[in-house]
Amino acid sequence: MTSRAPDVNVPMFTRRHMVGGFALGAGLMAAGAWREKNAAANQLTPEQVLSSKLDELAQTYGADELSVAAFNHVTNQGFQYHPEYRGYEASIVKVSIALAVMRFQHEKNDQLTDEQNQAMKASIEQSDNDATSQLFGMLGTTNTERADFLNGTYQKMGVTNTSSSEGWGSNETNPVDQVQIARTVYDGAEWANPNDVDYLRELMHAKDESQSWGVGALKESRQDDQDVLCKNGWLPDTDNLWNLNTVGVAILDAGAFSLCAMTKGFEDQTQGEKLVSDSIAAVVEAMVNHNDKIQ
């Protein structure tokens, strides 16, 4: 398989039959075991059933690790699967950088400039790294200043376990934090101009093929009155195995859901993409079918 190149400006790393009564008795024993198993299953909460489904998906695809988080904007309830996960941000950080630039402009009582609009369009729609570096460079005169401003924006979004160490893309994050960021995209923020946030939402409509998996895969089954916003990221680790991330918002008849799935340990990049896509689909199905019980 030919993998896409890393979508962040960081260096590539190196690395990794009985008869008669016996048959009847066996059949009754099997039936009894089946009833016990299903009785136990019926006692599981919807959240436990979903977690079990995600366990199966991770095993099927051979993932080293899988983590998923979601927030239901109707019920104000969330779901977390392996929230202890840590993995590279890769290009999902581009959403945060875009929001940070909006905050930077808002603090100057200004909106995004034409230059910033164009850079943001390339950064979000095509996952362009040069455009992202351009945007990051607008946050300060030094990398320390830029990182501090981005970290301040994380803090305003309620992000607690993600931070920039004078750069972007190769810092670590988790789906719990990324759902907080997706919630900001959906809800807006007092420190960002509403028109600018609307522009970001438009850019996240997953028009490019690179954004068609993960949350972006949901757009294939959406109706005209529904909406899907997505940003994907991919990056190899120190063993040259892929980290695959997806974050976004699904606005469906049953409500709106902020979503993120992250996985790693894949030699085959496409397998990781399929896993996060199936994981997101499983979470959305569970939250739609059990709208007030997944928490």
Rank of each mutant, 00 (worst) to 15 (best):
H82A: 14
S163A: 10
S3T: 12
T75V: 08
K108P: 01
T238D: 14
Y199P: 02
E273Q: 15
D130R: 08
S279M: 05
K37R: 15
G87S: 15
V159M: 10
A147K: 00
S277N: 06
S133E: 11
A63P: 01
A254H: 04
M204T: 05
A70L: 06
L66A: 02
E84H: 12
K264I: 08
S3C: 11
Q116W: 08
N243M: 10
K108Q: 14
V249G: 01
I181Q: 07
Q43A: 11
E172N: 12
S96Y: 03
S165Y: 08
D128V: 06
S3G: 10
D225N: 15
D253A: 10
S221E: 07
Y85H: 11
Q80W: 09
A182E: 15
E84G: 15
G188Q: 10
V288L: 04
H17T: 13
M18L: 14
G21P: 09
T2Y: 09
K156N: 07
A31L: 15
H205F: 04
F257T: 04
L150A: 01
S51A: 15
V101G: 02
S91M: 07
L235Q: 11
S279N: 03
T113G: 07
N193A: 14
K207V: 12
A40K: 14
V197R: 02
S91V: 08
L99R: 00
V185N: 06
N151R: 06
L24A: 15
Q180P: 05
S3L: 07
T142W: 01
Q295C: 10
P83T: 04
A58G: 03
E202I: 09
T173Y: 01
L54H: 03
E190R: 13
T270H: 10
T184I: 09
I92N: 05
P175Y: 00
D196I: 01
E202H: 12
I92D: 07
V93Q: 13
Q126L: 12
D148Q: 06
F13K: 15
K156D: 07
T132C: 14
V284R: 01
Y154Q: 04
K156W: 05
L252N: 06
V93C: 13
Q77N: 13
T263A: 09
H17C: 09
Q77M: 12
T238Q: 14
T270N: 10
A250F: 10
T153A: 08
L24F: 15
S3P: 12
G32D: 09
V185H: 06
T160N: 12
V215F: 06
A31F: 14
T141Q: 08
V19H: 13
L135Y: 05
D55L: 01
A69M: 07
D114L: 13
L235M: 13
A69D: 10
N38Y: 11
F104S: 03
S164K: 04
E36P: 04
L50Q: 04
R201Q: 12
T263P: 02
D196F: 01
Q180R: 08
G188P: 06
D237P: 11
K274M: 11
P236A: 11
Y61E: 08
N161V: 08
Q59V: 11
Q118T: 13
R103G: 05
N109R: 12
N151F: 02
T153F: 07
N129F: 00
S164M: 07
M204S: 04
M102D: 03
G255W: 05
V228K: 00
F13D: 11
Q180F: 04
C260H: 03
A192M: 15
T113A: 02
R35V: 13
A69N: 11
W191N: 07
E145I: 00
I280A: 00
V10T: 13
T173L: 06
S277V: 01
